[in-house]
Structure formats: structure tokens, C-alpha cells
Design a protein around this nucleic acid. Structure first.
Length: 281
DNA sequence: AGCTACTCCTGGTAGC
DNA sequence: TGCTACCAGGAGTAGC
């Protein structure tokens, strides 16, 4: 699933190609992909606009336009961006025809992805927490103690921290030695420091590997898979030995999300020890 | 405030 | 081999 490292990879790769280009025409093939304005107005308002910048905020990618407005997109689970001919052209939902004969294709098998043309990006992104790439331990400690939530759902909450998804939350919690069901307010200062460092480390290394591609979904704009899946410590490794301690990785469900933990590296919080946490495989 | 359940989607796959 | 039922999951929403 595209999370911060995947969107960052896409934005970096597309930036040189898209910056300065003009959108001649937007061809909407699946109307519900357009969150706002109405699909017909979307194309009309975009035509003739020049792209002045391409950037990322959380898991959103943002095309700044020469009229001050912005095209904001979210890939959700299976969204992809390709320049030129997309390898999954059958699932193209919106095709942007650019000057110079170039085209930008937004494809999405499961149709969860959304695009919005707005005056200000916040109108499409909603309230987002800070960027986690330079996350500070002292800020995180204070923020964790301002809530009383289980760690995993809180870290997935984009209003708390912008950019983490299921994969990188599991990976970061394992690296920090924290159980996903731990209460946020129970995290000590040194544990918060470790968690902040784990999040920074995990995201930086995932970006360096062009993201994670363990299925057919995520590809870079050049059509290549990422490589970070080879470094997964827990995600999708249920039943396999922990690379740190050898214990068997287990899968549980937290907030309707598949969750992967090492029972030895990530001790369950008091009150949950000894209870049956593993479900699924 | 925080939690669960439900919705949107459809390709892949487990199970028969 | 071929069919069906279910699963994955980001985010929004409703209800407790």
C-alpha cells in the first residue's frame, strides 16, 4: 500500500518530468475518482493550467498550479501514477494530456484513490499531523501522553502523524520494541525517543529502497517495484522467526488491521499477557 | 474521548 | 480442474 516512502519516491521521480508542463486536457474515465469539483468541471478548470511544483504532504501528492490552485491526490491502496504509457492501462481512471505529447496516467484497480482540484491543499487533505521524517522524541512523548489510545491506531491516525500506514507502523513498533496495543500514555520518555528514532530510520531506509512492493500494487512511475520488502522485520512474516531474537512472528488484528508482532521483542502490555491475541494464521 | 462496525472496490487465493 | 466465498486495507462515518 502506498505510504509516505512510496509517495515520496513517486514525487521525486515525477518532479523533473512534470514541473513546468501544461495540462491540455483531463480525461476522466471513472467519475468517482474525482472528489471535487464535479467531474465535468474538473476537466474544464484544469485545462490550460501549468504545473509549477510537485510535492508531498503525508501520503498525499500535490501538484501546484499556476493559478494558485492545487491538484491533490491520494493513492489509497492500489493507485498508481505513470508518465507515458501505463503498464496497467486497463485500470486507468484519469488521464492527463500534457503539452509536448506527454501524458500522466492515474490508474487504480480498486477505485479507492481520489483526486481533488482545490484552492488550498488543506481542503483535500483535512487536518494532518506533522511530517514524521524529522520526528522528535520529546514532541512524540508529549503527544502520546496527551492521548489515551492504543499505539497502533494512534500512529495510523493521519491527524496525529502524517504518512504512516499499516506496514511502517508495524515495522517501527517492532524496531522500537513496543507492542501495538500499548497505551500511548504508558510510553516512557526513553521509549518515545526509541520510537521516534525507529520511525525516522524505517522511513529513511524505505525511501532509499524506493518503497515496498510485496504484491502487484505499488510500482514506481517507471514501473519498477520497490525493494524495502526484503528488509521487513515483521510485516507479512507471521510464522517466521524474528531476525532479532528468533521467536516466531505472530499476526493479530488491531482495529480491523492485520498486525504483526514479535512476542519477545514487543512484550504485551499488562493485563493482556497470557490472553489469546493471535488470530488468523 | 476512544472504540467497533460498516462502507467503498476487485484481483487473488484458500477451500472445497 | 473449476467454482465460490472470502480477504486485504486507508479513510470516512455512524453508533455506542
Amino acid at each position: 500500500m502506498p505510504e509516505l516512502p512510496e509517495v515520496e519516491t513517486i514525487v521525486r521521480q515525477l518532479r523533473p518530468t512534470l514541473t513546468g508542463r501544461t495540462v491540455l486536457r483531463a480525461e476522466v474515465r471513472w467519475a468517482r475518482t474525482i472528489a471535487q469539483p464535479a467531474a465535468r468541471r474538473f476537466g474544464a478548470e484544469l485545462a490550460g493550467r501549468r504545473i509549477t511544483a510537485l510535492r508531498r504532504r503525508g501520503k498525499f501528492w500535490i501538484l501546484d498550479l499556476d493559478d494558485g490552485r492545487a491538484l491533490v491526490g491520494h493513492l489509497r491502496m492500489t493507485g498508481r501514477l505513470h508518465v507515458g504509457r501505463a503498464p496497467d492501462e486497463a485500470f486507468a481512471r484519469v488521464v492527463f494530456h500534457l503539452d509536448g505529447g506527454e501524458r500522466l496516467v492515474f490508474s487504480d484497480v480498486r477505485k479507492f484513490g481520489r483526486l481533488a482540484l482545490v484552492d488550498r491543499p488543506e481542503q483535500a487533505t483535512g487536518a494532518l499531523g506533522p511530517e514524521p521524517l524529522d520526528l522528535r522524541g520529546d514532541w512524540l512523548h508529549a503527544a502520546l501522553h496527551a492521548r489515551r489510545r492504543r499505539l497502533k491506531p494512534l500512529l495510523l491516525d493521519q491527524a496525529f502523524l502524517a504518512g504512516l500506514g499499516n506496514i511502517y507502523v508495524d515495522e517501527s513498533l517492532h524496531r522500537a520494541g513496543l507492542h501495538p496495543l500499548r497505551s500511548s500514555a504508558s510510553v516512557t520518555r526513553s521509549q518515545a525517543n526509541a520510537l521516534a528514532a525507529a520511525i525516522r530510520h524505517t522511513l529513511a531506509h524505505a525511501i532509499a529502497a524506493d518503497g515496498s512492493s510485496f504484491d502487484t500494487f505499488y510500482r514506481t512511475p517507471e514501473g519498477r517495484p520497490g525493494a524495502y520488502q526484503d528488509q521487513f522485520a515483521v510485516y507479512g512474516r507471521d510464522g517466521q522467526p524474528c531476525r532479532a531474537c528468533g521467536a516466531r512472528i505472530r499476526r493479530l488484528v488491531v482495529g480491523q488491521r492485520g498486525t504483526h508482532v514479535c512476542p519477545q521483542c514487543q512484550p504485551a502490555p499488562r493485563g493482556l499477557r497470557g490472553t489469546v491475541l493471535a488470530r488468523g494464521s
